[in-house]
Amino acid sequence: MRTSDPIPDSVLDDVRSFARTPTIAWIRRGAVALLGVIVLAGLTGILGVYSMTVHASGGGYELDLEYPRIARPGLNVPWNLTVRKSGGFTEPVVIAVESDYFDMFESQGWTPEPSAEASDADRTYMTLDPPPGDTLTLGFDAYVQPSSQTGASGSVSVHEDGSDVVTAYFTTWLVP
């Protein structure tokens, strides 16, 4: 600053004003509103893991599947199948699942471990020893791979004598 320059009344005297068009103002307001919606969604837990249970019955079996309806990459998710057969199980049970559905998961394993597994181009067939009683449970310990960006649909069936006896369908959505 030269000595001949007048002393400013405020430190803001040399701050230039800029022209704000109505379009820019509405874009800025929209961006702030969108950010607010995302923050509120995160605070309420909407962007977390939500599980759902589907039920199917047929051929003397009842299926209940708890699965991740909405999930996020990197989070653990539930996938628990309960199969009931009135009168109990006398033969091994074959569970057929769509293989592509499980591509989005990082698997820690099945509980219990199948006694045998086979697959074709679309599905994986797991043979489980008959449990005591009339209820079989199968759990899949997994989390969504961090690189997964989209969800998937799938199905799980009890497979007997070359055909599906009962099938449950499900879809998992992934959010950022």
Rank of each mutant, 00 (worst) to 15 (best):
I38L: 04
G59W: 15
N76H: 14
L40E: 02
W79A: 03
G162Y: 11
D14A: 12
Y101M: 01
V83N: 01
D9L: 15
I38C: 09
R72K: 11
P146D: 15
Y125T: 04
T135W: 00
G87W: 13
A31W: 03
T53G: 06
A41W: 05
D103Y: 13
S99Q: 13
G42W: 01
L65D: 00
W110Y: 15
T3C: 07
P131Y: 03
V93E: 08
L138E: 00
I46P: 01
R16M: 12
R16Q: 10
A142P: 15
P114F: 01
E98H: 12
G109D: 09
P130I: 05
T3Q: 13
D134I: 07
L174Y: 08
D14E: 14
E160S: 02
E66C: 00
F102W: 11
G36D: 08
L128N: 08
T137R: 02
S163A: 14
G109Q: 08
P146E: 15
A41S: 03
R16F: 03
W26Q: 12
S155I: 08
H55K: 12
A142M: 10
S57W: 03
S107V: 11
G60I: 10
F102P: 04
S51C: 06
G36V: 07
G45H: 04
M52H: 11
S17V: 09
S10V: 00
T137D: 00
E113G: 06
P8T: 07
Q108D: 12
D9T: 14
D13A: 13
V83W: 05
G60C: 13
A152W: 06
T90L: 10
F105T: 13
D5V: 00
T137L: 00
A71R: 07
V93N: 02
V49I: 15
Y143V: 09
P92E: 06
V166A: 12
R20K: 08
T135Q: 00
G42F: 06
P132D: 13
L35P: 06
S99A: 09
S153R: 13
V166C: 11
P6D: 11
I27R: 11
V165Y: 05
F170S: 05
P146Q: 12
T171F: 10
F105N: 06
L12Y: 15
H159V: 00
G87R: 05
I70V: 15
V83E: 01
S51Y: 05
R16V: 09
S115W: 02
H55W: 01
L81C: 04
T111W: 01
T124Y: 03
D129V: 00
P112Q: 10
G74H: 10
G162I: 08
L128H: 08
T124G: 04
E113W: 07
M104F: 12
S86R: 08
V156M: 07
P112W: 03
L75V: 13
S51A: 11
G154E: 01
I70D: 03
E66K: 00
G109W: 12
R84V: 12
T90F: 09
G48L: 08
T23A: 14
V166D: 05
V32D: 02
I95D: 04
L47M: 09
P22E: 04
